[in-house]
């Protein structure tokens, strides 16, 4: 295996490792791997936000 290819694999592995490491604490914090019944955090777009985006679109149309 050429050294340059090994370098490519190493760089990919570093970024991948960082991403995986970055994602684990939120799971632990949200209790996904624990016995807690409610997993993760539920985030929903509320009605006000939905209205905001609709109006935003209509403003673009008017322009």
């Amino acid at each position: 295996m050429p050294k340059s290819f090994a370098a490519v694999l190493l760089i990919v592995a570093i970024f991948l490792g960082y991403l995986i490491g970055y994602s684990i604490p939120p799971f632990l914090h949200a209790g996904v791997f624990s016995s807690r019944e409610e997993k993760g955090v539920a985030v929903e777009i509320d009605e006000d936000m939905e209205k905001y985006y609709e109006q935003l679109y209509q403003q673009d149309e008017d322009e």
Binding site: L16, L19, I20, Y22, S23, I24, P25, P26, F27, H29, A30, V32, G40, V41, V43, E44, I45
Partner: peptide, 17 residues
């Protein structure tokens, strides 16, 4: 599979869906 794991982790971290 790892991508699903990472993306879900980031969504929880930033509080977005």
């Amino acid at each position: 599979g790892l991508q699903m794991f990472v993306m879900e982790g980031l969504r929880i971290k930033f509080g977005v869906r």
